[in-house]
Nucleic acid binder design. Structure first.
Lengths: 210, 210
DNA sequence: TCGATTATCAATCAACTGATTGATTTAATT
DNA sequence: AATTAAATCAATCAGTTGATTGATAATCGA
């Protein structure tokens, strides 16, 4: 209730946003194959002409959805896991928690990501938005793995780059295959056993500082 | 040249098949979003009405493509790898070779699989064809991993079910992300290091019988 | 209060799309 | 050669789809 005055008609930015969210919902529900500008306008409670007032073409609207998706993936994460004192382990558990979080709380996000990823194969504008998302994610994983190796928590012979490629591929595939929670957990258990240094099985909160 | 006589007009089955292949090609090129019965008919060099003579609906045609895809995945594999005497290792290398094979020689197959997988989320008929493909694949991986553990080639603490889920997810994600060959190789190196028993690094052809 | 800008909608367009119809051609059978 | 069945096509239909137009209503600055 701070600055914005209540208005009968939404301001331009709000309407624009509501159209993007409506398109997002339509995309999650029916995919690109079933995405119709009319459905989006209806869902937003607006005439088609109004949609085209904010987005000159369907393509522009889709671009807006891609931007929205990217912002959501940056914003939305599982609640931070309780720190154990070991950064690499914390990061690992945070990654697991995030995966569960998206799968359980925001399945739409994963669905739309799949749609946009597929679309990105033929649409450079979409690719330009979606690809960096993965690049950034994978690079973060790579640094995390390298840190874990440096800290002595992860196995010495682990290749951070290859490990990151494997991890990102596996998480992408899991989202794609829409694995159940038990299946996800089984994967995480294997990943954990794979990452951890065989000698130093960390039982409880072993403090390790870099 | 054994039985079939040359004919000016293709027999029913042949035309049907050529329509499915045309639809497959269209799907690989433009995805479901751009799949048009007219394009398929054109590509097959046939009138739309003829298409509908063989496939009453677009949906039926898509079903035909799904069946075709499944048959292709059963039929097409990389040339068998040279046996090392260890079945589990051979199987592993065959899996790696297959992944490279599909990526390099049959990218269309992977593309159409992605399209159909996505479609399967909303189309039960497609799901019924595509899902067993993954189920069968994953179960085969699971048995392979279990065998490798039993043979003492793979690490004792490996969970075959979780490992199979991870492997299938990773391969699916890799196909989805269309990783380059070096990236695939990096993943395979990590998987190999992850699978192999730490103690018994199998140098050459150690014969192990179950 | 008034003019200008912004926002919205009903109506409509032209092109597209899956599917059908009825006639015609080709192949197999008698 | 005559008959029948299978296969193909030109033309067309009814409904959809992205986008536009011109009129109208709401909002804001002066």
């Amino acid at each position: 209730m701070a600055a914005r005055k209540k208005q009968a008609r939404p301001r331009g930015d709000e309407r624009r946003d509501s159209l993007v969210r409506a398109a997002f919902a339509c995309l999650a529900a029916d995919g690109f194959e079933g995405l119709r500008t009319r459905s989006v306008a209806d869902r937003a409670g607006v005439n088609i002409a109004t949609l085209h007032y904010y987005f000159p073409t369907k393509e522009a609207l889709i671009g807006g959805v891609a931007d929205f998706l990217a912002s959501q993936f940056i914003t939305l994460h599982a609640p931070p896991v309780a720190p154990t004192g070991c950064a690499a382990l914390d990061r690992m558990h945070q990654e697991f928690a995030d995966a569960h979080f998206y799968s359980a709380e925001h399945p739409d996000l994963a669905a739309v990501l799949c749609e946009l990823q597929l679309r990105g194969r033929r649409d450079p504008a979409i690719r330009k938005i979606i690809e960096p998302l993965f690049g950034h994610w994978q690079y973060g994983i790579e640094r995390w793995l390298a840190d874990g190796v440096a800290e002595g928590v992860f196995r010495r012979d682990l290749d951070p780059a290859g490990g990151a490629a494997l991890f990102v591929s596996a998480m992408t595939g899991a989202g794609w295959l829409r694995l159940s929670r038990p299946q996800l957990d089984a994967i995480f258990a294997v990943v954990e056993a794979w990452l951890l240094a065989p000698a130093a099985m960390p039982a409880t909160g072993r403090k390790i500082k870099a």
